[in-house]
Simulated scan of single mutants.
Amino acid sequence: MNFPQIRMESTSAQIALQTKNAKNYIQQPKADLSIEQPKAELSINTTPPRLTIDQSQARADVNLKSITQVIDDFSQKGYQDSLAGIARRASQGNELMKIENNGNPIVSQAKQNSETPIKEFGIKFVPSYGSVKINYEPAKVNIEAKENKPRIHVKVNKPNVQYEPGKVEIYLQKRMN
């Protein structure tokens, strides 16, 4: 009887691999960037200082008066002197009316009317303390500043990518029998 048989024979072979590496090229261009900085807005408002000096009292103290003030002073002095003269004459008249009372009013009045009053001596060219009035209002400065934010514009550029795929080749290099 014949039985079926399977026969296997093998032959040695040598295979070879050839590879080609993948290549990847990436280039990133720089971003386009623009920055603009507007100037700040600045406003300065100033009120000027004010200095006032009133020396009219000091000038009056050293007899350097305005013509209107001199006229007023003389008219006031004349009025006061006339009232003093009227009062003196009335008083002397009353003394003369009462001459019978033990006294000698004629001699005393003659002596009083003939003597000049004693002049006062003093320094007249120095003004009184505080006669010059000074008023000062300082300057006022108002500063307002408004900042303007920078304007920034950015344009992102996409990268340039080139890709070459790799390959693997398998082939029979040698067959051995």
Rank of each mutant, 00 (worst) to 15 (best):
E164G: 02
L64D: 01
A31L: 10
F74T: 03
K167H: 10
V126F: 10
R89N: 11
Q80Y: 03
Q57L: 13
E41D: 07
Q80F: 00
K146C: 02
P117Q: 10
K30T: 14
L83W: 09
I26F: 11
Y25G: 07
V126Q: 09
Q55M: 09
E169Q: 08
L96D: 13
F74Q: 03
A22I: 07
V161S: 00
A31S: 09
D72E: 10
S131N: 10
D73K: 00
N148L: 13
R89Y: 14
T46N: 13
K133N: 04
Y79P: 00
F74S: 02
N101C: 03
N24H: 03
K23Q: 15
N177H: 10
K20N: 06
I86V: 14
L17M: 11
I86S: 02
F3C: 01
T19Q: 14
G166P: 06
P127S: 05
G93H: 02
Y171W: 10
D54V: 04
V141S: 03
P165G: 04
A16G: 07
E144I: 09
G166Q: 02
T46I: 15
K174P: 02
V161A: 08
A31Q: 13
Q28E: 06
T46V: 10
D81F: 12
E169V: 08
R7N: 11
K111R: 12
I86D: 02
E115Q: 12
G78W: 03
I170L: 11
T68Y: 07
P29S: 05
Y163S: 05
T46Q: 15
L42N: 07
A13I: 15
I123N: 13
E100R: 12
K77E: 12
L172E: 13
D72F: 06
V141C: 04
E144V: 09
V62D: 06
N63W: 05
R59P: 01
R175M: 15
S108P: 01
E9L: 15
R89M: 14
K146V: 13
V168R: 00
N160R: 10
Y163F: 14
E137C: 00
A84V: 05
V107I: 09
P165V: 01
V107H: 03
E36S: 10
N113S: 10
M8W: 13
Q109H: 09
A16I: 11
S12A: 08
M176L: 15
L83C: 01
S114M: 11
Y171P: 01
E164C: 07
K149N: 10
N113Y: 12
Q28D: 09
R7G: 05
K167N: 09
N104D: 12
A145T: 15
Y129T: 04
K158H: 10
Q80G: 06
E164Y: 11
T19P: 05
S43H: 14
G103L: 07
I86W: 06
V132M: 01
D81K: 00
D61Q: 04
S82P: 00
N24Q: 07
